[in-house]
Every structure is written in C-alpha cells, then in structure tokens.
C-alpha cells in the first residue's frame, strides 16, 4: 500500500513541477510597462527622463470664419524645439515632473519693392531667429482613484508655468533685425482631471484641464520702448484618448483634443479685433517600448478651428525609466 502511495506521489511531483505559474512582476518588469499598461503615475522611487523633439511649419491657419487659409506673404517659418522632461514617483500615487523646453523659431521673409520714380528695385528680406530656453513647467499629479484596484484611475494634476523664457525681443537693431522672444512673459496655472481605464490590450482615457493665465507685461513690438501690460485668455483643454497594444511592445494611441481660449486683454482691455480662438485636433501616435526605453512618434493634425494654426506638428519622443 505504501508503495502505491509512493508511486502516486512520484507521478504527481513532475506534474506540479511543470504546471502553469503566475508571473511575478519584479521592479525591472514594472519599468518596462507600455504606455497602455503603465499606471497613470510612476511607481514610488522610479525616475523617467526624456525629450520630445517637435517640428512644425507655418503654412496655413484657420481664419476668423473658421476657414483654412494659406499665409499669403512669401515667408517661410518653422517652429521647432526640444522639451526635456523629468518625472519622479514620490509614492505609487504621487508624481512630480518638470519640463524644460528649448525653442528654435525661424521666420524668413523675402520680397522686393520696385520704385518706378528712380527705376530701382529694393530687396526686402529678413530672417528672424528666436532660440533659447522657453517657459518651464512644473507639475504634481496624484491618483485620486488608485489604478491598482480595478485598472481604473482618476488623476488630478496641478501645474505651474514659470516664465523662464526671454519675454522681450533682444538685440534690436531695426524692425526686421532682432531676436524674437521665446517666452510668454507670464505665469500660468493649470488644474485638471484625467480618467483612465485599462482593459488589456486597450486603454481609454478622458481629460479636462483649465489653464489660468496671470497678467504680465512685455514689449509687444520691437519698436516699442516700454513694456505693455497684458493678460492672455484662459484656456480649456479637453480630450479623449484610445490606445491599443498592436503587439507586446508597440502601441497605437489616438487622441481627440478640443481647445478653447478666451479673449486676450491688453492694458486691461479687450482689443476690438480680439477673438476667442478654438481648435479641434487629432493626434495619432506610435509608441515603441524596448525594455525601459520608449520611443514615440506623433503627429498633431488640426481638424477645425478659429484663429489658430492649421499646420500639423510632428513630435518624436524618447524616454527612459531609471
């Protein structure tokens, strides 16, 4: 009888040895989570650094009648920049981050003027290059509803924009010979909520942010000798996001964004020609997760709007979790 039990035990031993096991997540695995499966804030003690390179050409805009139009003057302008981002998880629910952007904006204009009275043609060309540190952002995010329990989270955020960028034109030698500013010249505070649900291999989110612009002063035109006080209109930014994992390490995210900004004020008054710009844009993004390294490629495409740019913006993102 004992021999029978012994044989049964011996037969069962290899069965338990090869049975399915639950995978234990170790810290290195958690650092390799994709944009779909990662929590909405970093885990405690994790640090993520990265950069986003953006590029856009000034070609078209939505006019005050919400029609897409070309800029008609013979000019070529590009807006490019590096945005260095640093994120740190203080707890599993609390994250702080800083964004330090460096901008490079170029505007080149070419035209000529013919003066028949003296039978002379004057080339009127200039290039303006604004480059340098732009306004920095500092953000705190907290998971009001923790993602760990039901793969659902509600994250609140508070952000301050500090006017670290040069707000006035510099090296002014003439109306068309100066360095344009790369900063906005005022503080801004943003508060908002993001709801997110993960249903592997998908994730859905919806967000809304309100941006309050503080008053400031700056030189509006290089010919001005004194700063003018201003207050940019407050913004509302809202959107929906749908992400899908195409395989274990590539995700496709789709975002629809709505933006509205109230009218700006100059010298405490709303100018007669001021408008309240708005935009609807779509942003598809491929995100490649190679272990702790993440590369993303995105295009923000304006679909409709009023008084805003109608040009797509290209963004390349590289991040690493330490």
């Amino acid at each position: 009888m004992k021999r029978k039990y012994l044989i049964i035990i011996l037969l069962l031993l290899p069965v338990t040895g090869i049975c399915q096991k639950e995978k234990q997540l170790v810290p290195s695995d958690l650092k390799q989570l994709t944009i779909v499966t990662e929590p909405s804030t970093l885990y405690k003690g994790y640090f993520r650094a990265g950069t986003a390179v953006s590029f856009g050409v000034v070609d078209k805009y939505f006019n005050n009648d919400s029609k897409k139009q070309y800029f008609l003057n013979s000019a070529w302008a590009t807006n490019a920049g590096f945005n260095f981002m640093f994120q740190y998880g203080i707890t599993d629910r609390l994250q702080v981050e800083a964004a330090i952007p460096v901008s490079l904006n170029i505007r080149q204009s070419e035209s000529h003027i013919y003066v028949p009275s003296v039978d002379t043609t004057i080339d009127y060309s200039f290039t303006l290059k604004g480059r340098g540190l732009s306004d920095c952002y500092f953000t705190v995010k907290y998971q009001l509803i923790n993602e760990k329990t039901a793969n659902t989270s509600l994250t609140g955020s508070f952000e301050i924009m500090v006017p670290t960028g040069q707000k006035n034109p510099t090296d002014i030698k003439g109306e068309t010979d100066y360095k344009p500013p790369v900063g906005n010249g005022c503080f801004a505070a943003t508060t908002g909520l993001r709801f997110r649900k993960i249903q592997y291999p998908y994730s859905y989110s919806a967000y809304t942010y309100y941006i309050y612009q503080f008053a400031g002063s700056k030189i509006m035109d290089p010919a001005d000798t004194e700063e003018t006080s201003f207050k940019d209109g407050n913004h509302v930014d809202a959107g929906l996001n749908f992400s899908i994992l195409l395989n274990e390490w590539i995700a496709l995210t789709n975002e629809l964004n709505i933006y509205y900004r109230s009218k700006d004020k100059i010298n405490d008054q709303i100018p007669a020609d001021a408008i309240a710009p708005w935009a609807i844009s779509y942003e598809p993004r491929f995100v490649f997760q190679v272990k702790r390294f993440r590369i993303g490629e995105a295009v923000r495409i304006p679909l409709a709007g009023k008084g805003v740019s109608a040009d797509p913006i290209y963004v390349l993102i590289a991040q690493y979790v330490f």
Partner: peptide, 24 residues
C-alpha cells in the same frame, strides 16, 4: 501643395501696391 511666389510691391510716393501669388 501651396507654392508662394516672392511678394512684390510697387512704391509710388506714399502709395504702395503689393502683389502676393499662391499656386495651389
């Protein structure tokens, strides 16, 4: 593709006529 041409102006006294051209 929207191709702009160089803007040109004719200046006569204080008057100016400017032409922009775009071939889309």
């Amino acid at each position: 593709n929207g191709i702009r041409s160089e803007s040109a102006s004719i200046l006569s006294g204080s008057n100016i006529i400017t032409t922009n051209r775009l071939d889309e």
